[in-house]
Design a protein around this nucleic acid. Structure first.
Length: 309
DNA sequence: AAGCGTTTCAACCGCGTCTAC
DNA sequence: GGTAGACGCGGTTGAAACGCT
């Protein structure tokens, strides 16, 4: 049924006549919009707004509904799996936020865009390189994403270790996250052939996520801070067990366009050397502040990146 | 406690595309 | 095919929250 035929007989008014409201939505407006859409469905936003008696543009109503009021909108922490998906999909599609959002159920393009701008671009800024530069993209792909994989595995391992009913053994380079489409053994995100539904588990919320649950130190941040790029650069990869770390990365399927594995290993060396000067690092892989970068580390990493790419 | 800088995220804007006429 | 209005997307803004001094 077209929204124009929903019993709305009010005369079409210009925006000036409507005295349109702007700015934050009130509870009353939210309730009005929810009730109207519940009864009549969404679509034809301009007339919907008029018929519902909202002094808002159709655009504003649509945005409020899609980004905030929709019942299936997920709010709260961006999980590690979601971060991995975002990084992976962004490397494929760039700033195609809505396309990326299609593969993160309950997440809106706006939320993903905000995550990218507030978290990812911040790290690019810290590294003094452009977020769209090859340098930074490679850093994300060869340092950040593998580290995320490791974090996910660690969280899953911790979770399974505490759960006697599971028989899953999380090894460093052979692990498949159940309930989602991130293939941990290949480091790839399985996507549907076209417009399918390959997604992270919709029920995987911050509240029930083993990842989040095993990381109480995350606090109330909107994203999990331990997965930040700064964390990777602080991570102690040379503790006699970094073989697994490299293996995890090594088995990931990288596009031909990206740098060669040897270059990647050089990044590891860069971090290793950086780590040797970083006695203050969090050796148990816990919560690490964004502010633990120091000038020398950033400079050193930048030198290694520019030398090896 | 106050002031100030930073971060986060909801909301707006502009523009390109789609659709109905 | 042309046009106008609606829609959707990506970029940007600004207020509120937060953290630090």
């Amino acid at each position: 049924m077209d929204v124009n035929d929903r019993g709305c007989n009010s005369a079409i008014q210009s925006e000036e006549e409507m005295d349109l409201r702007r700015g934050p939505w009130t509870v009353e407006e939210d309730v009005t919009l929810i009730n109207y859409i519940t009864n009549h469905g969404e679509g034809r936003w301009n007339s919907l707004s008029r018929c519902a008696g909202l002094k808002r543009t159709g655009k504003s109503c649509r945005l409020r509904w899609l980004n905030y009021l929709r019942p299936d909108v997920r709010r709260g922490n961006i999980t590690l799996e979601e971060q991995l998906l975002i990084l992976e999909l962004h490397s494929r599609w760039g700033n195609r936020w809505s396309k990326i959002a299609q593969h993160l159920p309950g997440r809106t393009d706006n939320e993903i865009k905000n995550y990218w701008r507030t978290r990812v671009q911040k790290h690019a800024k810290q590294l003094k390189c452009d977020v769209n530069s090859k340098q930074f993209k490679d850093t994300v792909r060869y340092l950040w994403m593998p580290r995320l994989v490791e974090r996910i595995q660690a969280a899953a391992g911790a979770s399974s270790a505490s759960c006697t009913t599971t028989t899953t053994t999380a090894t460093a380079n052979t692990y498949n996250l159940s309930n989602n489409n991130i293939n941990m053994s290949s480091g790839q995100v399985d996507l549907p052939p076209s417009g399918g539904s390959a997604q992270v588990n919709p029920s995987f919320t911050p509240e029930n996520s083993s990842t989040a649950a095993s990381s109480d130190s995350f606090g109330t941040s909107q994203v999990s801070p331990i997965s930040d790029l700064t964390d990777y650069c602080n991570y102690p990869i040379n503790n006699n067990n970094n073989q697994d770390y490299f293996q995890v990365n090594h088995v990931m399927n990288y596009p031909e366009s990206l740098i060669s594995p040897p270059s990647y290993f050089n990044h590891g060396l860069a971090l290793q050397a950086s780590e040797q000067n970083s006695q203050w690092m969090d050796m148990d892989g816990g919560d690490i502040s964004d502010n633990l970068w120091n000038v020398e580390d950033i400079w050193f990493l930048q030198q290694q990146l520019s030398n090896n790419m």
